[in-house]
Design a protein around this nucleic acid. Structure first.
Length: 274
DNA sequence: TACATATGATCAT
DNA sequence: TGATCCTATGTAA
C-alpha cells in the first residue's frame, strides 16, 4: 500500500492518536532497541510526512525517520489492552489510549536536523504537503525540463515529484493520455500541468479514501463507489492484456525504471503529451 | 506447506 | 543491470 497517500494518512491518524502525549516505546524485534530506549517516555510533538518519508519530532530534539519501503506496515489499535505485537515488530509506540506497531520498514532510525535537511533536499515537491501549489508545480516542471528519461521513469523518481509510486504513475499517465515513453523534457507545459494536477488529485483522493481508486464510475458501469467490484478500481496498473476500460484495446506492459509499467497504446499513443 | 509476489530504494558491478 | 534488504498475503500444491 505505501505510496504517498498511505504515508500522509498514517501521519494524520497517528497525529490524532499520539501527538502531545508521553509515549512509551519498545522494539519487540530488537532491531531498534537502542532508539526505542532513548525515546521511551518522551512527548511526541509532531509527525511530518514528505513524499514517502515520515519525520517524528520528539521532546528533546530527536527526530525519528521512517520509510516503509515496499513491505513496511503500521497497525494502530485503540483497544485496551492492545493485541500483543508480532515478533517482527520493529517499533511499538504506546500512548494514553492508542498503540501503534511498525513492522518491516526499510528505514527506522534516529537522525538530527541536518540529516533531515539532507533527506529533504533529495526530494521533489510533494503535492500532499503544505506549501504553495504554484511553487510546487514550478519545481515539478523544472525537474522535468532537466531530464531526458521517459516520463514513465521520471515520475517514479522521488527527486522529480515525491509520493508517486508504481500504481499512481501508471494511472496518472493513463488519465492524462500521455505516452509513458515520451522524454520528460518534451512534455508541453499544458501536459506537465495536467499531469501534476492529476497526480495531486489522485493522491488526495487516495489519502482520504485509504485506497487507490482512479476510475471514473461510468467507465466501469458503476453508479457509486460501493458498487465497484474487486479489480475494477484502476485503468492500467496490473491489467496486462485486459481490454482498456475506455477503448477496449488490450493494455500493454513493459519495464520502465526497473518496475513494470502498464498503459493503453491507443489512449496514450506514441508522442502524446509533446 | 511452499512459493510467488508486491504499492520501494539503495548499493555494487 | 543485478543483487539485496525487509514482511504479509494470496494462490498453488
Amino acid at each position: 500500500m505505501p505510496e504517498g497517500h498511505t504515508i500522509h494518512r498514517h501521519a494524520r491518524k497517528q497525529t490524532e492518536a499520539l501527538v502531545g502525549q508521553a509515549v512509551r516505546t519498545t522494539s519487540p524485534q530488537g532491531r531498534f532497541a537502542e532508539g526505542a530506549r532513548r525515546l521511551d517516555g518522551r512527548v511526541l510533538q509532531a509527525i511530518d510526512p514528505h513524499g514517502k518519508h515520515l519525520f517524528y519530532r520528539w521532546e528533546g530534539g530527536d527526530i525519528l525517520h521512517v520509510h516503509l519501503g515496499l513491505f513496511g506496515k503500521y497497525k494502530l489499535f485503540r483497544t485496551d489492552p492492545p493485541p500483543p505485537p508480532t515478533e517482527n515488530t520493529r517499533l511499538a509506540m504506546h500512548g494514553d489510549d492508542a498503540t501503534i506497531y511498525l513492522a518491516g520498514p526499510t528505514i527506522c532510525e534516529l537522525i538530527d536536523p541536518s540529516e533531515e535537511d539532507d533527506i529533504r533536499s533529495r526530494l521533489g515537491p510533494d503535492p500532499l504537503a503544505n506549501g504553495s501549489r504554484s511553487k510546487k508545480f514550478a519545481a515539478f516542471q523544472a525537474n522535468l525540463a532537466r531530464r531526458r528519461s521517459p516520463i514513465g521513469a521520471a515520475l517514479l523518481d522521488q527527486k522529480v515529484i515525491a509520493g508517486i509510486g508504481n500504481v499512481y504513475r501508471a494511472e496518472a499517465l493513463f488519465r492524462t493520455g500521455i505516452d509513458p515513453h515520451l522524454p520528460a523534457n518534451r512534455l508541453t507545459p499544458d501536459a506537465a500541468e495536467r499531469l501534476f494536477a492529476e497526480s495531486s488529485r489522485l493522491l488526495k483522493q487516495g489519502e482520504k479514501a485509504g485506497r487507490i481508486i482512479t476510475v471514473d464510475l461510468h467507465d466501469v458501469g458503476a453508479r457509486r463507489r460501493s458498487d465497484l467490484r474487486r479489480g475494477e478500481r484502476l485503468y492500467a496498473y496490473g491489467r496486462t492484456g485486459e481490454p482498456c476500460r475506455r477503448c477496449r484495446t488490450p493494455i500493454s506492459t513493459g519495464e520502465m525504471a526497473n518496475r513494470t509499467m502498464w498503459w493503453c497504446s491507443s489512449c496514450q499513443p506514441e508522442g502524446a503529451g509533446a
